[in-house]
Structure formats: C-alpha cells, structure tokens
Design a binder for these strands. Sequence first.
RNA 1: CGGGGUGUGGCUCAGCUUGGUAGAGCGCCUCGUUCGGGACGAGGAGGCCGCAGGUUCAAAUCCUGUCACCCCGACCA
Length: 574
Amino acid sequence: MRQKNMLIPTLRNVGAEAEMVSHRLMLRAGMIRQLAAGVYTYLPLAYRTLRKVEQIVREEMDRIGAQELLLPAINPAELWQESGRWDDYGPELIHFQDRHERDFLLGPTHEEVITDLVRNEVNSYKKLPMTLYQIQTKYRDERRPRSGLLRGREFLMKDAYSFHVDWESLDKTYRDMYQAYIRIFTRLGLDFRAVEADSGAMGGEENHEFMVLSDSGEDTLALCSSCQYAANVETAKVGRDETKAPDMAEVPKPEKLSTPGASTIDEVIQMLDKQPEQLIKSLLFTVDGDPVLVLVRGDHEVNEIKVKQALGAETCHLADDQTVNRVTGAPTGFAGPLGLKEAVRVVADHAVYEMAEAVTGANEADAHLLHVAPGRDFQVDLYADIRTVQEGDACPHCGEPIRFAKGIEVGHVFKLGTRYSDSMNATFLDQEGKEGRLIMGCYGIGISRLVAATVEQSHDDNGIIWPVGAAPYHVHLIAVNLKDETQSRLADQLYERLRADGVEVLYDNRQDRAGVKFKDSDLLGIPLRITVGKTAAEGKVEYKFRRSGKSGTLTTEELIKKLPDLLNRADQQQ
RNA sequence: CGGGGUGUGGCUCAGCUUGGUAGAGCGCCUCGUUCGGGACGAGGAGGCCGCAGGUUCAAAUCCUGUCACCCCGACCA
C-alpha cells in the first residue's frame, strides 16, 4: 500500500486519559479511535492486525477440527431466561426491546445460542463430538470500561463450544484446545502462562486461563518458583507442610481484655502489642442464605471463592451488619468463635489449626479474648484451605516458594459439563437409543484484547514492535527524499517488485522529511524497514529490523532474494 | 454504585480565582528555502468555549441542572 493516501493519522502525543501503554501507542500509531467509553473504531492498520490475529486463531482452530460458523449477536431474551442468565448476568447485559416490546440482548457470550442450535440440529451420538466456533463482536456493559482495547464494552472474541457424549471425549477436546491455545500465543511471540482459574459465573468444572505476562495486567498470578504450578491468586491453593497439632497444655484460660474502638487487625495488634499472626480473624459470611463464621490467621485474607468451594455452596458473601449484630451480639470488628448468640457453622483455615493460642474478638463491643485455643475453647466444623495465597507461601505441588506476577487474561478454556444442557434440555440419542445429556466445553480468546496485550508486551520508547505474525505489514519501505529522481525511481521499482512477489509492504511515499518518516515508522512497528536513500545511485538499499535494531545494506536484487530470510530473523531479539 | 477530575479550532493545552474583543504549540492549506531521525520563513483557513436554564448592561469565566469522558475504589468474569 502507498502510505500517502492511507488513513494512518499518527499523533505526536495523546491526552493524559490514555494511561495504558497499548492504549497510548495504538492511538498514536493511528490504529484506533475512541467513539464512546469502551467503544473503539479500528482504523485500517488495526483492522489488518486484527485480521492477522484472527487468521492465526482460525488456522489453529481448524487444525483441531473445529468448524467455524457465525451466530447472531442479537439474542432473544427467552433463551437467556431459559438458561437463567437473563437474571444472573444482570446489568452487564446490553439489552433492548424491539417495536413489539419484545426483549433482546446483544450477546456477551454465546452458550445459549449454540446450545439451542445443537439441541435442535444434533440428535445422534454419531455426530459427536463436535466443536463449533465463531469470531464475533461481543457486548458487555462493563461497569468501568478502561485501558483502551483491554477492557471494552464492544470487543472481538473467538468463542468455541464443544459437545460430547461423555467426559473422556470432553477431556480430549479440552486438551486439544489447550494445545491449540499454546500454539496461537506462541505464534504471536507472547510470554504467557496457562493458569488454574475460577470458573465464575460461567459455571462448570476444570478450567484454565491463558495469561500474557505484563506488569499492567489486572490479574495476579501465583507462580511456583521451581515447578510448573501456576494459578490465578483468586483460586491458587496454599501448600502446607505436614500439619502439626499444637501443644496447648500450657495455654492459660481465655481472658477478656478491653480494646475500645479496636475493630481492625491493625488496631488490635497496636493496642495489645501482638503480631498479626497471633490473631484469629473472624468474619461472618452469608453462605447460601445461612450465616457461617469463617476463621483465618490475622495476617491472612479470606478467599470467598475457596469458602464457597469448601462448603459446596452456590453463593457466598460477607454478612451485612445486622446479621453480624444478631449472630455475635456485637458490632462488626469484634466477632470471635467463643460465645456466639446463635449456633452457626464454623469454618477455619488450616493455619488456624496450628495455632496453640490466639487473640480473637469477644463477641462484645470493645473487647477481645486472649489465650484462645482452637479445638480446646471452641469447635471447628471444617478445616479447609480458605485463604488467599501470599507471596512466599509454599507451592501446593513442590513446596517451593510461590511468587506473584501480573497478567492479562487473553484466553480461557472451560469444562462446562451439563450446566447448559441441563437448563436448556440439550440431549442426544446414544448407541442403545437411550437419551443422554450433552456434555459441553467452551473456549474463548479475546482477539482485540490479544492485540492490545501484544503491544503491552512488545514495544519500546519509540513505539510498537509487532511480531511478524501480527504485523499489519511485514515491510515498511521508505523513500528518504522523493524529489531525488534516482531514489524515487528505485523506491517505486522496489515497491512494485515487492508487491508482485506478494510481500505485504507499506510504502511511505509521503512528501515528508526523512525524520518524520523514520519516527512514524518506529511508531507503527512494522518488523522490517527498507530505506531507499543515499546509496540509491549504487542500486543499494538499507534494511533495519524494528526489534533488534540491526541493519545492513544490500542491492535490491540481494534484498529480494534474501527477504524471506530477513523476515524470519525479524522477530529475533538480537 | 461511591469518591475525585476534565469538557475551549483536527490533536495537546492555557485563559476561569478577580465577568468586558477567544489564545498558544502541533497539525492542515499556499509560496519560498531546506531534505537520513518529528526543518525554517512568510501568508492563510478553522472554535455558537459539551448542552440547557439562571444571575448580570455584559458569561468560556459566577450559580443551578444535565450529558459525556477520564482516574481511584467497590462489584462482576
């Protein structure tokens, strides 16, 4: 393409509202423009990159036998009422009514539509397993869209759904997908990890998130410093040594102390001159409607997801103040396991078991108890791993220390099981003519987010550095001075030749000074730059890799011969 | 949803406290010089100051409302 008439409105600077590197660089490179909060126009360069990424995803999906289709973005409310998600998804659904006042929504994901399709069209085990996917715009009314393409309200996503007669079949497709994802992110040259994750509102069983490592990521990952263990901190397990029963023979009886106004761990340790790990933090949760007292060590944090899992519950959240008052007889901040007004279930973290004595709330305003011995002074109904992992904790697999890293979630694979086939009655007939419930998996990749994540991970002070796989063009051809007849003719010839050879080349034929072209070229981040300049008279041009900065001079014939080789080297760091 | 902030040529911003002719840099157009890392000179186009009310002789500026956008938090996947 000749750059002169292309819509590539580069900017020297952008406003302070764009904070994320990818957001700033994509604005500056003339790739995206914001239309509304979380809604962006993809200009020609961004659209090319988007299609490049799409194509990689498509190839890897096709390779594992997935079939591409396109589902409607507009969904009737009935389908979502049937699955129960019309209410569950809540205000995040963008919905509207048509002229007949029928409810519709713009799909944030497509389990309902695909399940409806498959239950109608696939009735026999002979067709199974089957994997279908689409690449489509999704709509989510995020409470707070932010960070440019990383968290939009309209975004491009690849979503795949698999259907099976049994779990073994799902396991196989899940593994295939997992490998396909690894190939996709590897082809994009990304530094990423597959981590164990929580399935959230999607429901279902085993699942992994694919995280691009980046300090600007919203998710925190717990990575083992020694083995392969990797998990989202939301769900990461806490490893522990062999549990040792504490010796509490010498522990005196509980003693009440006045602690006026000390309702937080910090205030209590200040007042009593204790360390946080000598306290038991007691929090009242409402779990499936019932109050449950949850105990963790003072320096630990309760993990609601784990509490929910440990109790096999559907819902779990901190109890409101009234409930706390009723159950403990005290304002929030003074709860403890001794002397509750109501008998409630008590769940404690493993670390609590190992405490010989502890400070707890006294279930009385402005008072705490000293010398409380778990097991002696109160009973625990269930000990479980219910705290959030901390940096330095033992890895649950090998015991080595866990370290944290930040990541951007670009993919997620789920084993859904029968979550949707149950609620939507999706069945098939097996070999014996008996009806079976379809077992499902679903697998997403945020395509537009992936583009932004690539920029987050691949840039320098001068601009974007595209991996060849995602680059909008492979070669940026620059004529230094178009008024120089020799340069201009050589550049034109080279452009036509490259084009004829099928090379994806962007030709900067603008009547600008060299400095402007070089600056823009760095900003756009095309992997290989070819400059036609001073040496044009000798029939020579210069090449330069955007990533490594390495350069050289070649005749045009040599260049054309070596171009495939040069492009192979373009992603190299050195 | 709570807290904070910002809306002024295409872009980045000043002007607002203390009301009185709407500004700068970049970009854009024309001419000339320049031409390998965001050139220089001269001339020019372009803005009902987010919107609606109000106060005032007079509002970008003060008041009220409203909308949009950004940031932090909560929430959610």
